[in-house]
Nucleic acid binder design. Sequence first.
DNA 1: TATTGTTATACTCTATAACTATA
DNA 2: TATAGTTATAGAGTATAACAATA
Lengths: 146, 146
Amino acid sequence: MNAVKLTSTLTFRLGTLGAVVTDRFSARLAAHDLKPKHVGLLAVLDSGAAASQLDVAKIMNVAPSLVVSLADRLEELGAVRRERDPSDRRRQILTLTAEGRDLLAACARAAAELDAELLEGLDQDGAETLRAALGALARHTGLPAD
Amino acid sequence: MNAVKLTSTLTFRLGTLGAVVTDRFSARLAAHDLKPKHVGLLAVLDSGAAASQLDVAKIMNVAPSLVVSLADRLEELGAVRRERDPSDRRRQILTLTAEGRDLLAACARAAAELDAELLEGLDQDGAETLRAALGALARHTGLPAD
DNA sequence: TATTGTTATACTCTATAACTATA
DNA sequence: TATAGTTATAGAGTATAACAATA
């Protein structure tokens, strides 16, 4: 009959760990008055993978209307600049400001701190293996994996 | 200056992969008209870790009122039975029925299928290492890791 | 007429607060 | 008076649909 134990599946573990980690990351971001999605948008811009809001929406897999409000907030913080594309004035080109890069760096540091907390107890080797395996999985799923 | 790349952090990878995986799992569960949380409740009951609704709420880290509606739905499906504790008639004891066990098994199979899809391309060894590492992480985070 | 961004609106999920019954 | 469960209500987050500007 080959019964599968749900709690041992990758699906269950990634789902539950993902939720816990996102919660804890959110808590750390609260200091900057940001949500994980804001940071995701900063990361997309930093990667240079997108420029217009619609591009960003596609990459992030969210509705264009959500990008509007995420960008509103980030613009308010001075983290991104919004400029009409001169060659197609319908498009809003989003660019990271110096403040935006600093903010992203601060969020990355917060993530790294959380990493350390999570990996507490795992040996160095196990940690690196895990990071690599998740990277492969991310690549295979179409997520950024650099 | 030791800059950290956000997208390489465990935090980012677990968060984004967790979201994608949960979405895809939800899509598969739709066939049973269930959400991941319903399956989580079934798994808690199966583990024997809880009996009353309040116990379940604590273990799942959700509000007691949410357990009410999750249990309502599962009872409707005949997957769980609700019985007043004779020794304390305020407590509702939830137990898995045979149908509930079948349903959980079907969900576990759905998760295993998704696992196979995710692991496509990863070698057997990498897959096992990953599962083990996530298990260690889950244990360290207080999540079920058996 | 089609596309980008925006605004208005609605929906899903979940928590908090008020309530009932038991203790 | 305190606790388990329930119901009513509210909030966060996000999507869908209608709209404006530009192509």
